[in-house]
Design a binder for these strands. Structure first.
Lengths: 195, 195
DNA sequence: CTAGAGATGATACGGTATGTCTCATCTAAG
DNA sequence: CTTAGATGAGACATACCGTATCATCTCTAG
C-alpha cells in the first residue's frame, strides 16, 4: 500500500473530494458505522485500495468528515442592537446549524467522543466557537453596565446554549424562533439593569 | 438456531446475566461498536451461538443494555422543603446519574438514536422521568403561588436540565454541587414570588 | 428418582468484510 | 515526450458473521 503524499495534486484532490462527499452522505443517512472503506469506495466510484491510501482506518475518515462540519459562521455583533437582540441573533445562527446537518454530525460525535479522544478534541474545536462568541457578547454587556455585574458569563452561556442542545439531541426537536425568544427573554431579562 | 423462549428458567437467567454484564463492560470500556456477539461471548465465557439465541442482532443487545441503564430513582419531594431545595435535590440526583455510568450510556444512545428509531424510543423512555419529575415540582410551585404564574413549566425544565447535559456531553465535565447551586439560584430565584 | 424437554457447548460451513499487496494503466508536471 | 506518482483491478490470507448440527448439560414435571 503506497500512501498518498502530495495534497496539491489535482488528481488527489478530485478523488479525495469524491470520497469525502460519499462518506458524508453515508454518515448522514446511515450513521458512523456505515462509513467504511468498502462502502465509501462503492459510493464514490473509486477503488477500495484508494480509500485505504488516503485513510488507514475508519476513525481517520470520520475525523476528516467531522472537522469539515465545523463551519459555523456567525456575523459580528452589531453595536446598534440591544443585548437581548444580540444574544438572540447568536442563538438563532446556532440553532440553524443544529437544525441542519450539524445536528446529526454533533450527535455522531458525542457518541464517538466518549471513547475516542481524537474525536473528543475535534468536538471541542467544533463547538468552542459558539460559546466563545456568546461569552464575548455577555462579557461586553457586563462591562457596559447593561447586565447585572454579578453575572457569571460562563454559566450564562451554559444556560442559553444547554437547552438548545437538550431539545435537539434528546427530543430531535427543531429549534424554533419562538423557543429562542422565550428562552432569551426568561434567561436574560432578569439580568438587564433596570429594564 | 433454536431461540431461547423460557425466561423463568434459571439456566437462561444465569447465562443472560453473564452476557449482559459482559456487554455492559464492553460498552463502558470500548463503546457501542465493541458490543458484538463474538466479543460478548468471549467476555462472558459463553458459546457464540448462545448470544445469537438470545439476541438476533447487535441492536437488540444494545437495547436491552440501554433499557437496563434507565434506573434513575428519585425520592418523592418533601413538603417541608422550599421550591429551591426541592429542585436542587432533583437536579442533584439527576447529576449523579449523569456523572456515573449513565453519562456514557446516554452519550452512546444519543449517537445511535439519530439513525435507529428503537434506540430513540428507548432514549425517550430513559430520559422522560427526570423532566417529568421536575415538571411536577414546578407545576406544584406555580399552583401554590410560590413561583411566578407566567412561568412555562416545560421551558423551565429545559433551562434547568439542558445545562447539565451540555456540560456532561460536550465537555465531559463532572457536575458539581456548586454548579447546580449556581444554576438553580440564577434560574429559579427571579421566579420566586416576593423572595 | 427418573424421563423428557429445553438450553447450552462445540464445531463446521458458506458468505462477506478487512487489510495488504502487485502490477497495469492513467494523470500531472517538467 | 518522459517520468514520477496516483489510481484501478484484482488476488490473497485472515477474520468476522449468521446459521446449522449434534452431543452434553440442566431444569422440571410426574
Amino acid at each position: 500500500m503506497t500512501r498518498t503524499e502530495n495534497p496539491t495534486n489535482p488528481q488527489v484532490q478530485r478523488t479525495q473530494s469524491l470520497m469525502l462527499d460519499a462518506a458524508r452522505t453515508l454518515l448522514d443517512e446511515h450513521g458512523p458505522e456505515a462509513v467504511t472503506h468498502l462502502r465509501v469506495a462503492e459510493a464514490a466510484g473509486v477503488a477500495r485500495a484508494t480509500v485505504y491510501r488516503h485513510w488507514p482506518n475508519r476513525a481517520a475518515i470520520l475525523l476528516d468528515l467531522l472537522r469539515a462540519g465545523a463551519d459555523l459562521r456567525l456575523t459580528p455583533p452589531r453595536a446598534d442592537l440591544t443585548i437581548t437582540e444580540r444574544v438572540t441573533a447568536a442563538l438563532t445562527a446556532f440553532a440553524s446549524a443544529l437544525n441542519g446537518d450539524g445536528g446529526r454530525t454533533l450527535a455522531a460525535m458525542i457518541g464517538l467522543a466518549e471513547w475516542d479522544e481524537d474525536v473528543f478534541a475535534a468536538l471541542g474545536e467544533m463547538t468552542a466557537f459558539g460559546p466563545m462568541f456568546l461569552n464575548g457578547i455577555i462579557t461586553a454587556g457586563i462591562e457596559d453596565g447593561v447586565l447585572d455585574e454579578n453575572t457569571e458569563p460562563a454559566l450564562l452561556v451554559d444556560r442559553l446554549i444547554g437547552p438548545l442542545y437538550f431539545r435537539r439531541l434528546l427530543y430531535h426537536d427543531l429549534i424554533t424562533d419562538d423557543y429562542i425568544a422565550n428562552l432569551v427573554t426568561t434567561t436574560i431579562e432578569p439580568l438587564v439593569r433596570d429594564g
